[in-house]
Structure formats: C-alpha cells, structure tokens
C-alpha cells in the first residue's frame, strides 16, 4: 500500500523533470544534430526532412591536400597560439600586479580591460581596421593576433589576477624568509601555484581566438583566412556541407579544452575573479 502511494506521488515530478530535460536537450542538441546531418549529407533537397543521400565526399574535399580548409585550420591555430602567448605576456605581470600590489586604480584598470567588450564590436573593428591599414598591419597575422588579444585580454587578465590572488601571501613570505629573491620566489612558489588558473585563462583565450570572426573579417580579409572565415564563405556560397564540416572541426578543440579547463579552474580561483 505504502509503496504504491509513494509511486503515484513521485510520478508527476518525474514526468515534469523528464519533459524539461528533453526540452533542454532539444534546444542544445537540435542545431548540433542538424549540423551533423549536413556534414554527412551528399545531397539534400528542399521538401525532404532528411538528406536524400549520405556520403563522405565533402569530407574528402575538405581534407584534400589542396583544400584550403586545412590551410585555414593551420592559420587559425597559429593565430590562436600567438594570441595566447601575447595575452599571457601581458596578463601574467598585469594579473600579478593587480592581485598583489596596492594599486590605486585597481577597479578602474580591471574595467579598462573590459571596455572592448562593453562597446559595440562593429565600430571598434572598423576603426581598428582603419588604423591598422595606415600602419600596414591590415591583412597580416600580427594584426589579427592583436585584434584577438584585445578580446582575449579581458579573460586573461581577470582570471590571472584571480589566480594570483588565490595564492596565499604567506606562502610567498615563507619563500622570501628562507632566502629566495623576489624573482626566485615568483618562479618557485607563486607561478606554480597560480599555474592552473593561468592555464585555464590561456585555454579561454585560445578558444576565443579560434572562433573569433568579426575582427578577423575586418582586419584579416582577404590575406588571412581563418577557419571561421572559411565557414562564412562556404555558407554564403550555399555550401552547407563545407560550412558544417568546418564547424564540427572547430567544435573538437572547444570540447577537448572545456574538459581540461573544468579540471584546472578551481573554486578558490573562481571566487577571486573580479575581486
């Protein structure tokens, strides 16, 4: 008797929960499913709900040695790596200073890095492109890296500052106390302890750079073609297969790195973000 009554009571929340889970799954995975279908569709004409014919011929086209997909992938990764290096070169000293030194305009400086995100992207990029054009940075990898870094630095500096702030200051004092110079202390204690946060920020910057589109479009075209630009061109040309395959390619590093980030970004670091 008791179990039956319990069963009936539990049924309603279970159904509701199942319904919402299904809804969320559809919202998230629906577009992805469409992407996967298109990536393997040989032919797909309008009234049909599913592709007329499946195949891998577009994959061959993407991955053939002369195909520009692989070249763009290379460009994308190269730019992302440079962006990460550049961002870290700025974020490590800046983050450390923001976390440790008593800077008078601390909050202001943190907000300054947020500024590129706060204003509408388009006018900013148009103006950057205009400036870069006059100084010869338009259409160069360096120009694209700078644009990506402007974006990535927010994440990099904010997370790096949080990562350094999460390192207990007495750990550094103990190191100095036992004979370490400021630089040795930073190298042997502060940096290793902040490393997980810094790695996480590097990964965010890498991913941000990998699928950045607008800035690359204004600064890089037509000389620098990254994967998102290739995808854009393909879908504008009605070639949904190429666009979908490129999108799937972009998805791989994103998912892989998200798993890594999840391991590295500890709660005590997250708690310090923006402090």
């Amino acid at each position: 008797m008791t179990t039956a009554r319990l069963g009936r009571v539990d049924l309603l929340p279970m159904v509701t929960r199942g319904f919402f889970l299904a809804l969320i799954a559809f919202v998230i995975f629906g577009p992805l499913a469409n992407l996967v279908l298109w990536a393997f569709a040989e032919r797909w004409y309008f009234p049909n709900k599913l592709p007329n014919e499946y195949g891998l011929s577009f994959w061959y086209r993407v991955f053939q040695p002369r195909g520009n997909a692989l070249a763009s992938l290379g460009t994308s990764v190269w730019i992302a790596v440079l962006t990460v290096l550049f961002s870290l070169a700025v974020a490590v000293p800046a983050g450390y200073a923001l976390a440790r030194l008593r800077l008078p305009w601390r909050a202001g400086i943190l907000l300054l890095f947020l500024l590129p995100q706060a204003v509408p992207n388009m006018p900013v990029y148009v103006n950057i492109a205009r400036v870069f054009y006059t100084i010869g940075l338009n259409g160069t990898v360096a120009g694209v890296v700078l644009v990506h870094a402007a974006h990535g630095l927010v994440l990099a500096v904010w997370i790096a500052s949080a990562a350094f702030a999460a390192v207990d200051a007495s750990l550094e004092e103990a190191s100095r106390n036992l004979g370490a110079s400021p630089w040795t202390c930073f190298r042997t204690v502060t940096l290793p302890l902040a490393a997980p946060g810094l790695i996480a920020s590097a990964i965010f910057v890498f991913l941000e750079s990998l699928d950045e589109f607008t800035g690359t479009y204004f600064v890089g075209v037509p000389d620098v073609t990254t994967l998102p630009l290739l995808m854009f061109n393909a879908s504008m040309g009605g070639n949904y297969q190429i666009a979908s395959i490129t999108a799937l390619l972009l998805l791989v590093p994103s998912i892989a790195f998200m798993l890594v980030v999840e391991r590295f970004l500890k709660p005590e670091v997250l708690a310090m973000v923006g402090r």
Partner: peptide, 20 residues
Amino acid sequence: LAPEHRGTAMMFQSYALWPH
C-alpha cells in the same frame, strides 16, 4: 635588509607549507 638576507627563519601561524 630584504627578508632573504636577514638570516631569520619564521614559522607561520598557517604553517605556509607549499602544497605543490
């Protein structure tokens, strides 16, 4: 003098052992 040149060694309240 800077802390590293003083020849003192401190034991901290939190111990401040390096977790790595």
